[in-house]
Design a binder for these strands. Sequence first.
DNA 1: GATTTATATGCGGATGCTAGCATATGCGCA
DNA 2: TGCGCATATGCTAGCATCCGCATATAAATC
Lengths: 95, 95
Amino acid sequence: MQQILTALCDPTRRAALAIIWGGGEHCVCELMARLDASQSRMSRHMKVLREAALVLDRRDAQWVRFRRNPQFAPELSAVVDAVLAAERTLDKEIA
Amino acid sequence: MQQILTALCDPTRRAALAIIWGGGEHCVCELMARLDASQSRMSRHMKVLREAALVLDRRDAQWVRFRRNPQFAPELSAVVDAVLAAERTLDKEIA
DNA sequence: GATTTATATGCGGATGCTAGCATATGCGCA
DNA sequence: TGCGCATATGCTAGCATCCGCATATAAATC
């Protein structure tokens, strides 16, 4: 739990998770581009998400593809869902 | 959102919030006793919860009574609910 | 006014998080 | 083997967080 919340505490990680949580595979370079983050920065943030078991990764040629961990405890998935949903709602309200 | 997650990131604050979130008023000295926290530590943690608008406080003679903020945005309340529920569930599994 | 109880806060030290830079590693291709 | 793209990581500086200790403030009571 502590690890999950720590992972969710950084806006860049939340943004990366928002992209990944919806499904599909995403490489670091894609996330770098979409989130305007430097390479080492993105790589380290993904490491935190991986170590919290929020995402899984696999090598695919030069790339490392990240995807949502489907075996994540449902109570914890509910936390992630709530955070991402809240963020979407609040962003909409500002815009 | 950032402020909420930062507030939730500390285990002492989560424990205090778990007590308060259920309802009722609770003074700092009660929380100190129940969470085995020093006075300055507890006071500061409560300040973080207050500044995140998770809780409201009022003076009552020597005491400061904290209670859940009833006007908290529902999407954010959902985050708190999910976190506290997950923590309860996981604690139960360990025990 | 003095004392006691409850709470807040200034200060300092320890620790941790984050980012950038440079460099290392892994993989495909010529 | 050598080169280039994608990713990981050692190092460091800057900044935030957390805690304990001491002290300040607030309210009640005598």
